[in-house]
Amino acid sequence: MATIKDVAKLAGVSISTISRVLNAPDKVSKDKRERVLRAIEQLKYHPNALARGLIHKKTKTLGILIPDISNYYYAEMFRGMEDAAQEFGHNIIICNTDKDKQRMISALRSMKEKQIDGFVFTSEPVYPDYYDIFNQLGLPVVLASTQSLEYAIPSVKIDDEQAGFDAAQYLIDCGHRRIAMISGPHLDPIAGMSRLQGFMRAMRTNELDFDSARCVEFGNYRYDDGYAAMERLWDKNPELTAVFAASDEMALGAIYFLYRSGVRVPDEVSILGMDNTRIACMSLPRLTTVAQPIYEIGYKAVRTLQEVLDGAGPATLRTYLSHQIVARDTVKNVNGEIF
C-alpha cells in the first residue's frame, strides 16, 4: 500500500506539499498540484487522517471514554455521539474503561499517540488526579452524563438532584406515602448521592416520615443489585407501597424479586425506574421511568466538543437537558389508576 512518502518521492515534492494539496490546494502552484495528483492516481494512494492533518494539525478523530460499554445506557448515548461525529466529519475511537483508573490512563495515552483532536469523558467524577491527566494531555475535553463543579470543563447532563425529587413527587402525587428508594452508590457524587438527595428533599417537602435506615438501599445500577436491594428492603419494610430505583436495570431486578415473592406489581407495590433505556418498554409489565434524553446527551456532548475545537467554546459551561417521567404500567395510584 502506497504511503504519503511514496507519493512525495514520485512527485518530487515534500510531504508538506502533499498535505497542502490535500487540505488547501489553492495554496499550491498548478504545476506541483498536478504532479501530486498524478502521483496519487498512479500509486492509488488513499490518504489517511494523519496524512491529511499534517498541515492543520487535525485528524478528524475523537476519543470516547465509556465506563461500561455493555450497559444499555451507554449504547444509546454512543449512538448520539456517533451521529454528531458523522455530521461534523469525525471518526471515533471508543474505549471501555471499566471504571479502572489505569485502564483509563492507558486509553488516553493511546488516543494521544493516535493524535485525536479531543475526547468525551462519560459518567465518572473528575477527580483531581484525573484533571491533572487531562491537563498533561493538552486535549479538549467535554463531559457527558457527568460534570465537574471544581474545574471549568464543559459538560452535558440532566439535573440528577431534581430528577430524584421529581421521582418521589410523582409517587407521592399518585397517593403513595410508604415509599423507599434503591439508590446508586452513596460514594457516587454524580448520580448516586444527588438522586438520593432529591428524593429525600421531596419527602421532607411533603412532610412525610422517612427513615433512611429502613427506606434506602444501595446498588451499582445493575439488575442483580436491584434484586438484592429489593430483597433487603422487603425484609425490613414489607409495608411499603412504592419504590424508586435509580436505574431501569435495578428497577427490573426489584420487580423480579417481588414476582418471585408473590407480590404483584403494580397492584401491591409500584416500581419507578430511571433512564428510559430500551429495556424499559420490553418488560412485563412495562416499566414506568424517569426518562433521560440519553441520545441527546451524547449528541450534544460531541456538538459541544466541536464548538471547543472551532475555538468558539460552548455558550454555557454546564448544560442541563430536561428529563421527564414516562408513564407505562408499573406505578398505580391509590384510586387504582395506572400511571
Results as ranks from 00 to 15, higher is better:
Ser183Ile: 05
Arg260Lys: 15
Asp329Ala: 11
Ser123Glu: 10
Arg318Ala: 07
Ala312Arg: 14
Phe78Leu: 15
Asp83Ala: 11
Val308Tyr: 01
His186Gly: 01
Lys101Ala: 13
Leu65Arg: 01
Asp160Asn: 15
Thr289Gly: 04
Ala2Tyr: 10
Pro238Met: 08
Met250Pro: 00
Pro125Tyr: 10
Thr59Gly: 06
Thr17Val: 14
Gln115Thr: 06
Phe257Pro: 09
Lys9Tyr: 01
Thr304Trp: 05
Asn220Ser: 12
Arg303Lys: 13
Ser283Ala: 15
Leu309Asn: 10
His46Asp: 07
Val290Tyr: 07
Gly89Asn: 02
Lys101Met: 12
Ser19Ile: 10
Ala242Asn: 05
Ile172Phe: 02
Ala242Ile: 05
Ile15Val: 14
Glu124His: 01
Tyr130Pro: 00
Leu137Asn: 09
Lys332Ile: 11
Ala85Asp: 03
Arg38Trp: 01
Met250Cys: 05
Gly273Cys: 00
Arg222Pro: 01
Ser14Ala: 11
Met203Gly: 11
Phe78Tyr: 12
Lys58Asp: 04
Asp267His: 13
Cys215Arg: 13
Tyr73Glu: 00
Pro266Met: 13
Lys32Glu: 01
Gly80Ala: 06
Ile279Trp: 00
Ile40Phe: 08
Ile297Gln: 06
Lys9Asp: 13
Ile297Gly: 03
Glu87Trp: 01
Leu37Ser: 05
Pro285Cys: 11
Val141Thr: 11
His90Ile: 01
Tyr223His: 12
Asp188Ser: 11
Thr330Tyr: 10
Phe339Asp: 04
Val216Tyr: 04
His56Ser: 15
Ala280Thr: 10
Val142Gly: 03
Asp98Arg: 15
Cys281Asn: 12
Met193Trp: 02
Leu309Met: 13
Lys101Arg: 15
Ser283Lys: 03
Glu268Gln: 15
Tyr131Asn: 06
Pro140Cys: 05
Ala254His: 02
Ile94Val: 15
Phe134Met: 11
Asp248Lys: 03
Leu208Met: 09
Val36Leu: 09
Asp235Gln: 12
Asp188Asn: 14
Tyr151Thr: 03
Asn333Met: 05
Asn91Arg: 01
Arg264Gly: 00
Leu50Thr: 10
Ala301Glu: 07
Ala251Glu: 07
Gln115Lys: 14
Leu305Cys: 07
Tyr256Phe: 08
Arg318His: 14
Leu240Lys: 00
Gln136Ala: 14
Arg328Gly: 08
Leu65Ser: 00
Asp129Asn: 10
Ala202Val: 01
Gly262Ala: 11
Cys215Gln: 15
Leu287Ile: 09
Lys5Ile: 11
Gly253Asn: 10
Ala291Leu: 07
Lys112Ile: 03
Asn276Cys: 07
Tyr299Thr: 03
Met250Glu: 03
Gln136Tyr: 05
Gly336His: 02
Lys9Ser: 14
Ala144Val: 07
Val156Leu: 04
Pro25Lys: 10
Thr304Pro: 03
Tyr130His: 14
Ile40Met: 13
Gly311Val: 11
Ala11Asn: 06
Asn71Trp: 09
Asp224Gln: 15
Glu41Ala: 14
Asp100Ser: 14
